[in-house]
């Protein structure tokens, strides 16, 4: 990793790390499920941003692909969590016919 990074990139890294800390605090304290879900979602987003900044600092542009994968996984994970909270379970009890296997695939 190259030593001399653009100051703006360093500032962005610092800002992202501070935001990660704030999201972590909210996930630890968050009294309701929704606080924690929002914290996790933001944590994933900030991880994506952190990977993108690291890609620019280190000049390894292939890391941007990883950032895209993380964004997708984060999205799927949050959908799964919201599904659990909304329905109380993955299994549909009524007419809606979705099995947990489909929940795995998002």
């Amino acid at each position: 990793m190259s030593m001399e990074a653009h100051p703006m990139l360093l500032a962005a890294t610092a800002a992202i790390l501070v935001t990660l800390l704030l999201a972590l605090v909210r996930a630890l304290r968050g009294p309701t499920h929704y606080d924690r879900i929002a914290a996790i979602n933001m944590f994933g987003t900030k991880t994506v941003l952190l990977i993108a900044v690291v890609a620019f600092i280190s000049g390894r542009m292939d890391l941007l692909d990883i950032a895209l994968v993380y964004a997708l996984i984060n999205f799927i994970g949050v959908i799964a969590v919201l599904r659990l909270v909304a329905h109380g379970e993955f299994h549909s009890t009524g007419s809606e016919d979705i099995e947990p296997g489909e929940a795995d695939r998002g």
Binding site: Y70, I76, E89, F90, A103, D104
Partner: peptide
């Protein structure tokens, strides 16, 4: 870690 096992653990928690 983030994708499959979170979903599996949530499915277990639902039961």
């Amino acid at each position: 870690g983030t994708g499959v096992s979170t979903v599996l653990m949530l499915a277990t928690l639902a039961l």
